[in-house]
Amino acid sequence: MEELLTIRKDLVQKYFIKKKMSDSEYSIMHQEFNTTQLPFSSDLSNTACSFSTSISCKSDFQCSFNSKQIKLITHSVNEVHLFSPDVSEVQVKALFACCLEYPLKSACNRRVAFFFDALCEHKLISTRWQHTIDKNGLILSSAKNVLLNSSKLSTALNEAKQNGGCVYKSIELKVLEIARRLII
């Protein structure tokens, strides 16, 4: 929702003009948000155009981890089995720099989404992490060899939060450990 309100003024103006939005209209808007780019037309204000340009240039996690932090993150990611096969420090560094040679393969989409959301909640990465993974083609789905998009990540995160299994508590503890060590 935050991304919609801050980035897609065109969709807010298109769908929020009514007093009430139906579920089907919301679904259409959500689909349009995930599958279209912000139009650069003359009817948009200069402010909106310059704002959207600056956002599109920042399609990254907005983080800067040093080598010790990358080592800790890599260890944590492998310990909770986010990717298949396990990943190296070089791959994790490239992931957060959005310059992977090949996308990483998710071992479980819900775990991956939960992990990145936990990093975000601890303010270690941008709130636009789903968009970043999507736009940079960083992670393949666990079920198929297709790239995870924002919509699939959002669904996986919702399912993970509803599940509440012990693996998610383990992920939360790992991210908490990462956050604490990054402060020191």
Rank of each mutant, 00 (worst) to 15 (best):
F114G: 03
N109C: 12
K18D: 11
V77P: 00
L4Y: 02
F114T: 04
S67I: 04
H131W: 06
S24E: 15
C63A: 12
I73R: 00
L38W: 00
S22W: 02
R128H: 08
F65C: 05
H122S: 08
Q31S: 15
F65L: 06
E89Y: 04
S41M: 09
L44H: 15
C63W: 02
P39H: 03
N78F: 00
A118L: 05
F115H: 04
E32A: 00
P39E: 07
E89N: 15
R110H: 09
A48I: 05
F33T: 02
F61K: 09
E2L: 06
S41G: 15
D60S: 11
S106T: 02
Q31H: 15
L72Y: 07
W129N: 08
V112E: 01
R128L: 04
F16D: 07
S50K: 13
S24M: 11
L4W: 00
S76P: 09
S106H: 05
A113K: 00
E25T: 08
F40H: 12
F83K: 07
T6G: 13
L124P: 11
T132N: 01
D117F: 06
L38E: 11
M21D: 03
E32I: 00
S50V: 12
A107D: 13
P103M: 01
I17Y: 13
Y15R: 02
L124F: 01
V12P: 05
K20Y: 05
S106R: 04
A94G: 06
F115Q: 00
F96H: 05
Q37E: 15
Q69A: 10
N66Q: 04
S41D: 15
C99Y: 00
N46E: 13
L44F: 15
S45F: 02
K9E: 08
S45K: 02
F51C: 11
K14D: 10
V92I: 14
I55P: 05
K14V: 02
Q130P: 11
S50M: 13
K71C: 10
S27I: 03
C99Q: 12
H122M: 05
L95M: 06
Y102V: 14
H131E: 06
S24I: 15
